[in-house]
Design a protein around this nucleic acid. Sequence first.
DNA 1: AATGACGGTTCAAATAGTGAACCGCGTGGG
DNA 2: CCCACGCGGTTCACTATTTGAACCGTCATT
Lengths: 248, 248
Amino acid sequence: MSTVAKAVSLLEHFTLGEPEIGLSDIARKAGLDKATTRRLLVALAGHRLIEQEPQSRRYRLGAGLSRLARIREAHFPFTRLAVPIVRELAQETGETVHISEFSAGALLTAHVELSAKANRVNVDVGQVLPLHGTASGIAFLAASSDEAVKAYVEKPLQAFTQHTVTARAKVLEAIRLAAARGYSRSLQGYEEGVHSVAAAVICPDGHPIGTISVASPISRVDDAAAAAQGEAACRAARKISARLSGEA
Amino acid sequence: MSTVAKAVSLLEHFTLGEPEIGLSDIARKAGLDKATTRRLLVALAGHRLIEQEPQSRRYRLGAGLSRLARIREAHFPFTRLAVPIVRELAQETGETVHISEFSAGALLTAHVELSAKANRVNVDVGQVLPLHGTASGIAFLAASSDEAVKAYVEKPLQAFTQHTVTARAKVLEAIRLAAARGYSRSLQGYEEGVHSVAAAVICPDGHPIGTISVASPISRVDDAAAAAQGEAACRAARKISARLSGEA
DNA sequence: AATGACGGTTCAAATAGTGAACCGCGTGGG
DNA sequence: CCCACGCGGTTCACTATTTGAACCGTCATT
């Protein structure tokens, strides 16, 4: 394991639920020596990726991350442009809606608008979604090049629930269907009891960069409702794609 | 130089003006070997801190940064809570207003609302401001502990313009004045022709975490206008501080 | 066809990383 | 009251990772 990978893995132990961690604690979590951990944290702190609370001496994520994220966002304003449309879609469907951004072979949840209903699907920002097994992933693959799809389905596909589609032929079939009608649909492929539909957001250069997805408790959705959600997600995705290419 | 420091320094070569860089180019800029640079970039990409454009093979900042920044922001919602108040203050004063966040011995510009006037001060998000020589820095020091101030002024203080105050005694005097009246004032201490006032934003635990600052062309501001801006910045800073401690 | 710049790879040499043992400190239980 | 424990932090001999000159194939330019 490279030193850099170790350092970055330290960053990934800070979560929404545990945003500050002590030295010994993070060393244990990361499986590294305390001395090594500290050296890495100090190196990260020198570039503001980590900060240390002066009193408790605990560590937390640093302001430099916000700075870098803003630079990325300025060049790649996916989240900023998409949020209002996510909100609209959440209003329209009454369900939880989230957008994901493709990165390193998976989708990263970038923004979530939760349904107002008591019985709703919860999704966390930052969650990593596999390409197969989620509606978002299938929609993304449907908008990807044939080579990219082929490369992806050749690797072994993990099952997340009893309903996850892992057979290559069936995954390809789902991708074809999604490509034909513009949105994908997944029933409990990643989480038990969750129904979702998704559509891909396309960059001006023609490549997909992410997805928008509607997730509902499976009990609330029949085929007609799913089709309506799918069409709505499709329209929302097109709206975001249009904004990305500079249209107001 | 540690490997981690090298890897992180690669991230810092991506800027608003140059958000995508080729391998040889970034190796040159960072002063590292091409092979080393690539190995570091690949390690960073493995954790989504860097992405590679598949076609051009150029590198850019990755979605993982947005993810980490969101985790930080959830725990430390300074920017989110402050933006509306920055906007109000920009409206009220008609000048450029920005907030900065303290990190690793300096202030990082986190958000900017530019003046609508043609003759205005421009500030870039991400810019690093020294503690002495800027109104923001003096305001921040005025809200810091005596030990922190002492530790800071003991180091040599760089001059950025002919007007930068670098004499220890004068800096301490400026800090005292800022502490007494709640806001600081700087005339061309960091950039020629720029007048600014600033006030510190205080965390619920009593420590300062950042500043809010109004920057104008020096020709437009007399003592009375500066006092009015200072009072307004002070009110804005208090409002942000109140929001941070949970008040609506 | 030759040139040069690009992204990417290799492997022996050299440098940076590692971790067991240590320090001083604060805390909570016996 | 004090002792044991866990904390953050430091040291230094040992070792594994990092390094970079030289390499390859490709592409655009001349």
